[in-house]
């Protein structure tokens, strides 16, 4: 659960609302269980959406985290 949990922990640092979406399904980026069910579903691309005062910073840092750390199991559905 490491990468997904890292994402949630980082997301919680931002004031903005954070969402991740895949295949048109959008979930709360600060909810570990929501993210798990999302990445478990089929799909190719993850989209990060932030809405709030620090939205730009949030998207850059979270995307960076995904690129560097989400190379494990949890994004295997995306890398296929």
């Amino acid at each position: 659960m490491q990468p997904a949990n890292e994402f949630v922990k980082l997301a919680k640092n931002f004031k903005s609302k954070i969402f991740i979406s895949k295949n048109g399904k959008k979930v709360d980026g600060k909810s570990l269980l929501s993210i798990l069910t999302l990445v478990a579903s089929k799909g190719v691309e993850l989209e990060i959406i932030a809405d709030g005062s620090d939205e730009n910073d949030a998207v850059i840092k979270l995307a960076n985290l995904i690129e560097n750390n989400f190379n494990k199991k949890e994004i295997k559905n995306e890398t296929k």
Binding site: M1, Q2, N5, D28, L33
Partner: peptide, 16 residues
């Protein structure tokens, strides 16, 4: 440590 770190996140999951 990691397992319980994740357990904390599950516990605090605000959606839940």
């Amino acid at each position: 440590e990691d397992i319980f770190d994740a357990h904390q996140s599950i516990l605090e999951d605000h959606v839940v």
